[in-house]
């Protein structure tokens, strides 16, 4: 019962979003809280006309689209809107697994400028999984109307990742967003996320688990984050990791044959 994703126990790799694993073009993920205009950003970038209603949970079908920037084709994946990535719901699990295991070349986290604090919660969690994060502060026009000002340079400095302000409905800031995405994808800009420091007890526990995890998953998955999830008793992630590790070997072997 439930989403097929759950019942088949499949890993949320690129395949479940119909992105072939062998794809050459860069893959960019869009994460964000519900109702941040994430789908509007998606539509504006891809030219697709996925309907964007104003009610929580409308992006139930993950959407995939593509766009061309500077002569190069990018695949864009619209992840379900979530408040967090702690896997309390199927949506959160899908979003998290995609960022973790499908390893997009960049993850754009869309946040609502009128409600930044709440949205940063998700940004901080995304940054724990992947370095290649771009924060898109959307609905900046609405924030202006409400006299809310956001110091995006400072935000970028505090987070350690690029920040772009946009008003996706009017198209404001989108070309800059595309530039920044390509900078991150091709390594011209290397985000250095400044991660949340936990209480000494938690940090100590992470430090104890991290080496063992790194030995298992290698450099492809963030060991600090996995340690944190295991401490949280996240059994589902354990299963996903097992599938990932078992699958990685044959894939790597196949790749070597091909190259």
């Amino acid at each position: 019962m439930g989403l097929t994703y759950q019942s088949t126990g499949k890993l949320a790799t690129r395949e479940i979003f119909n992105v072939p694993a062998s794809i050459r073009q860069p893959v960019v993920a869009l994460a964000g809280n519900p109702n941040t205009g994430k789908s509007t950003v998606f539509n504006a970038l891809t030219g697709l006309r996925q309907h964007t209603g104003n009610w929580p949970g409308k992006t139930v079908l993950q959407a995939k689209g593509s766009y061309i920037h500077d002569g190069r084709k990018y695949t864009l994946v619209d992840l379900p809107g979530t408040y967090s990535l702690l896997a309390n719901s199927v949506e959160e699990e899908v979003a998290r697994d995609f960022i973790c295991f499908a390893r997009p070349d960049a993850t754009v986290t869309v946040v609502d400028a009128t409600c930044l604090e709440r949205n940063l919660n998700l940004v901080l969690q995304v940054m724990e999984i992947t370095d290649k994060v771009i924060v898109c502060v959307n609905l900046i026009d609405e924030a202006r109307r409400k006299n809310i000002r956001i110091d995006s340079d400072k935000l970028s400095e505090r987070l350690g990742v690029p920040v772009v302000t946009t008003a996706a409905r009017s198209g404001e800031g989108l070309s800059r967003l595309l530039d920044v995405i390509s900078d991150v994808v091709f390594g011209r800009v290397q985000p250095k996320p400044r991660l949340v420091r936990y209480t000494p007890e938690v940090e100590e526990a992470i430090a104890r688990l991290e080496p063992g995890i790194r030995a298992l998953v290698g450099g492809e998955i963030n060991a600090r984050w996995v340690a944190l999830r295991l401490l949280d008793g996240d059994i589902k992630l354990g299963h996903s990791l097992e599938i990932f590790c078992n699958r990685r070997e044959p894939v790597r072997a196949a790749r070597e044959v091909l190259v």
Binding site: Y83, S84, L86, N88, R118, N121
Partner: peptide, 11 residues
């Protein structure tokens, strides 16, 4: 349980 997690996630 789950309710607790949800409430925490909401802030």
């Amino acid at each position: 349980g789950l309710i607790r997690r949800r409430l925490l996630d909401l802030g």
